[in-house]
Design a protein around this nucleic acid. Sequence first.
DNA 1: AATGAATGAGCCTTCATTCAT
DNA 2: GATGAATGAAGGCTCATTCAT
Lengths: 216, 216, 216, 216
Amino acid sequence: MTDPTQERLLQAAEEVFAEKGFQGGSVREICKRAGANVAAVNYYFGDKERLYIEAVKYAHRACTQGTPLPNWTPDTPPLRKLGDFIRVFTTRMLQPSSAASLQLMMREMAQPTAACVEVVRDYIRPMAERLQAILRELKPDAVAEDLYLHGFSIVGQCLFYRQNRPIAALLVGDEGFQKFDVERVTRHITAFTLGALGLADRLPDCLESETAEVAR
Amino acid sequence: MTDPTQERLLQAAEEVFAEKGFQGGSVREICKRAGANVAAVNYYFGDKERLYIEAVKYAHRACTQGTPLPNWTPDTPPLRKLGDFIRVFTTRMLQPSSAASLQLMMREMAQPTAACVEVVRDYIRPMAERLQAILRELKPDAVAEDLYLHGFSIVGQCLFYRQNRPIAALLVGDEGFQKFDVERVTRHITAFTLGALGLADRLPDCLESETAEVAR
Amino acid sequence: MTDPTQERLLQAAEEVFAEKGFQGGSVREICKRAGANVAAVNYYFGDKERLYIEAVKYAHRACTQGTPLPNWTPDTPPLRKLGDFIRVFTTRMLQPSSAASLQLMMREMAQPTAACVEVVRDYIRPMAERLQAILRELKPDAVAEDLYLHGFSIVGQCLFYRQNRPIAALLVGDEGFQKFDVERVTRHITAFTLGALGLADRLPDCLESETAEVAR
Amino acid sequence: MTDPTQERLLQAAEEVFAEKGFQGGSVREICKRAGANVAAVNYYFGDKERLYIEAVKYAHRACTQGTPLPNWTPDTPPLRKLGDFIRVFTTRMLQPSSAASLQLMMREMAQPTAACVEVVRDYIRPMAERLQAILRELKPDAVAEDLYLHGFSIVGQCLFYRQNRPIAALLVGDEGFQKFDVERVTRHITAFTLGALGLADRLPDCLESETAEVAR
DNA sequence: AATGAATGAGCCTTCATTCAT
DNA sequence: GATGAATGAAGGCTCATTCAT
């Protein structure tokens, strides 16, 4: 992790695998891009598959660490938390900085490998549980399955902008897609979701977060 | 197209590419599975990439034809159309029959290739325009971009169940995911969406479609 | 078998494997020596191991076909058969024509692989049974195990000249080893064996075979 | 030589090279088995080939020291010496204790390397000369070449049981080969050889050695 | 003296593709 | 028109070896 060659290999692997997939990316290209020897992958990671898994985890780490959730206090109101959550998610989806990382994650979702299990366990489940907790505060009487359905609806809206970005861009044009920036999408999804929860009038409670708090 | 060998090649390519991706799937395996000669791919399609594109289009055709939209009359109320649309989409996402086709589509979304352009033009854009038309009927004063945002929210909810199925299944368990069947998910997304549109009380107008109408 | 490329591959494999062993010989070198493509081995034989097995069998065929046993008639006396057998064996061991073939066989004996089973079944067992039959005629009252011990003693004497040729040549010098030609070794082993069988006075009955009959 | 790491490397090399040959055995595995560093081989022996040579010599030392010739007195009769010699040789060939050592020696015979010269000079030639001396006592009038031929016949019979053990075991079955134990083979080869020397009636003079004398 | 991190050469195999038939 | 034999390129990986410590 601290070894600079290992770090460069992970970065290169993230880019190459994101661009060409596990099968399409070659160890040779990754090493070349990382300025390392052909044998470096086997030396540091054992084999190509393990490098891939580590690259996926590295990618997810890059995605989440770049845009963390705010540090809520015990008395942060749940609506505020929900607004924060949506904003963090849309930010992750739309900011171009971590394009390769997200691309790699999307590949992993489409065709899960051994990496998926580790990523879900280490990174996704904690996020999911935080969203469930927020929704439980907002709908204390709902059964667990309904909470999941609501969570899926919220997250599904956010993920759309990354997972189907090429399609959306083809539909509305690249310049058209530019208009869907973080701010606009966040406001839309927040309003859409509050309406669905029957809390349309509480929209201001959600959006008062300073954007500076979550922007990196 | 009418050549039975060509047809078998497309089916085999759909399966293999869905399972292993473009790079992972081999021409040899596809030909073997289709009972054709090793050179058949190059003979019928020119090269592997063109076969892939045709397989993606074939897959999308299979997806849409398997679960078509109902034939609405001019006086079908828009809410009913919206309900139908959601049901058709969730059905496509959740029914296991067309697993390979959808899997291949998901791959293409995650990493668009030349096939993506053709699929969007031939199959996705028409669907998108129908949804835009429905939403325009429901919100005649909204600007085009807001209609898109609403459309993305609706479709994003539906796509979630396919694009992130492995993750969702890991979160709630395989047996837990079974509970999210077409009926339940359809009702949830319809209700969630109507609420977001401020039409929560109109839910019955959406759901009166006989399921037989959309079941294949 | 009839394919000239396949034939050349077998010959090249025999030489290379004889010289460097299974691990030491490379597919690349074999193909190069055979004037074939690098992929030819996998195309014709599947993998390196199968090529090796076929090369060993090819080598044994070359050894045995070059110096076959004479066609005995029902009334050929057993001593004559024994003399023929010894002469054929020493000829195979000492004639330089099939050096590579024998070298490869010796390697296989020292470290048997999957090829050994097939060679024993197809080529060695028939020879062994013929020797057993001859010995049974000469010693009708001996138990089977004693016949094997005698057979091993006879064959062991012959094999020595090939299996330990480098050592013997180092002991007596290369020019000294030259003196142990087929004729002399045959006479010695025949006389030694007849003496061991208590038939020393019958030596002439053994050696009357025309050498032309077994020389190639 | 006295360095314990060097000793462990030699033992490990003997085992690995015996099992997989020079090319098949890897320096890494040898070092691992010896609990030494990857670079230890190059440090102690220069390169892999020199380690191999030392391992072969080490193996031959282990073979001969494990079953030494008895200490004959000047008046030990030659027939007794011959019997001892045969027994020592068959014991070395058939006792399973030194399997790895002998296996490695057999490999070296089949494909002599630089190690062969040294082994012959240091270990084999002395043995050969002792056998020549014995035979010279028994056949004082024979020419040197005939003495060699007789020596080769004797040693060839013994070596057979090791050099062609896999083949013999395939011919008579593994359990069948078990019956050829040291005692039986020794008696057979001794009797066979005495008969060949025209001394069949002197068999008792050969076999009176106490077995304890040659057992390790 | 002795180590282990790091390397470049080479391994076997699979691949998509072509060409003569 | 349609095939299958044959190919060159490239794949992942293992190897013996070296060099700074």
